[in-house]
Amino acid sequence: MIRELTCIGCPMGCELTVEVENGEAVSVSGNTCKIGENYARSEISAPTRVVTTTAISEQGRPVPVKTAGNVPKSKIFEVVEQIKNTHPKLPVALGDIIVPDAAGTGIDVKATMTVKE
């Protein structure tokens, strides 16, 4: 089976053609770098995304956060829910862990901005 995908690895958005056998990518074409090939392989077998959102601090100011790596697409809302229920205390530094092991994915959620007050 052939599947057409658009790579989300960077803003180029390469159009990928993927040959799929038994739920796995066996060949990828149309990519201009390694990211495209990796994206196609994981998108076919187990799609993942980086999640970005905000955690409202104890003081009320939102702190922008992201998952430090890809999490399964099916876990996105669970990850966001857990971040919603977390209220970090300011100050927060860029890179501080806000939620460890988000939704059991093994991936930490980290602050993406230094917020002093």
Binding site: V50, T52, T54, P64, V65, T112, M113
Partner: peptide, 25 residues
């Protein structure tokens, strides 16, 4: 960039995918 909290910034400049605030910082 401070309000662009999504990722996808800096792939050309830093060879990694940053959020807007990270790129700005």
């Amino acid at each position: 960039l401070n309000q662009c909290i999504h990722n996808g910034f800096g792939l050309h400049t830093f060879k990694e995918e940053l959020t807007g605030p990270e790129y700005a910082e």
